[in-house]
Design a protein around this nucleic acid. Sequence first.
DNA 1: ATTACTATCTCACGAGTAC
DNA 2: TGTACTCGTGAGATAGTAA
Lengths: 228, 228
Amino acid sequence: MPELKVQHILTLAELLAKGARHNFVTITTLSLGKSINKSQQAASKHLLELERDGYVERMRSGQRVSVRITTKGHTEMARISTILKSSLESSPSYVEFKGTIVSGMGEGAYYMSMKGYEKQFKSKLGYIPFPGTLNVKLKDKEFIEAKRTLDTHPGIMINGFSDDKRTYGWVKCYPSKINNSTDAVLITLERTHHDDSVIELISKENIKKITKLSTGSQISIRVPIRSK
Amino acid sequence: MPELKVQHILTLAELLAKGARHNFVTITTLSLGKSINKSQQAASKHLLELERDGYVERMRSGQRVSVRITTKGHTEMARISTILKSSLESSPSYVEFKGTIVSGMGEGAYYMSMKGYEKQFKSKLGYIPFPGTLNVKLKDKEFIEAKRTLDTHPGIMINGFSDDKRTYGWVKCYPSKINNSTDAVLITLERTHHDDSVIELISKENIKKITKLSTGSQISIRVPIRSK
DNA sequence: ATTACTATCTCACGAGTAC
DNA sequence: TGTACTCGTGAGATAGTAA
């Protein structure tokens, strides 16, 4: 039983679109070729091969040829369509980070506890985060790239503000899951004091305590995103 | 802007299934090759070309390579999936017959008016048909073939019966539309008195009168069927 | 006008192999 | 282990053309 050749997929799709599932449709190899961006000769060969392999039936009436798709042909197309559709849908809708917990520098805690931020956390996240950030050193280049991916997705925006001394940048929040179970919020900062390979997380409670993780532990963070 | 090559479709689908939409996934060209039923070398080339054409991004970490599908790649796959899906769905769910009206031989009328049939018509179709059948001479070989197609689909079964003299065969009814507007019922008989190229229709009223068609008129009959 | 043959070309694939 | 080069083979495409 010969497999359906990939290059025949579009040809079958075109015939299907022309209504060749249940009725013989009369179509010239020239127009079929145009539809699939191939030559008349290629279309003719496609039909011959599709017929040989049992995906279509053909019927000559003089010069013209009518074509109909067989049940086998239809089944095969449905199969391929399903494969494509499910592979598109099955794509997980999260960005994943993997790395190891590193000791925070205390800085994050200081900034995140400022009244200008806390007020917004309370209203936009629904709580005031535990004073302190969990810092994760990313394991690989691809996770650093993933950070850039995140930038293209919307997050919860915490606006910057000023006090007497200086201005403080915005903070973007991405609700996420640690090790697929604990809720936390990955934050990206307008003005970061880390290099690219470290990400910071905040949470309602002390993350290390709740997850029983400590400095050096391997950790996975998943940020759900809306698939487009 | 190079088009996505057909042979790359399955490769992209495989990457999609592996979750490479939002995250870089580490996959060896050997295993990728196996998944798409190609060699390691083919898989490697696919990835190189997909990258060259902007459908995936790659990232080397030493020997291994991580792959992620770009927005362009995802869009393209979605496009193809939609084309296939809609071509499968758009396929009209009817079998069509075209031909010319020929004068009935009166026989049909006689048989169809028998009490053994009439009782069943009344209960299964909801009415007693006009006494007389519309005979249509099919125009082309493909419509004769379409009759065979119809046989594989279920219709409303009118059982045969016997009287003192003889037995009468079953009649299978397919509700249909004449010229896409008038309701009628195409019937196939266990024992037909026509050759293959003629079909018969019955209806509540006199079809010729209602449609203002007469012997010699071109006519189209569509029999809706359940697509499988 | 339309199909499909033949010849030719291109490029997709796998084998072998370097790194 | 891995990736990806070169190279040979053959499938798939086109041009030209017969029917």
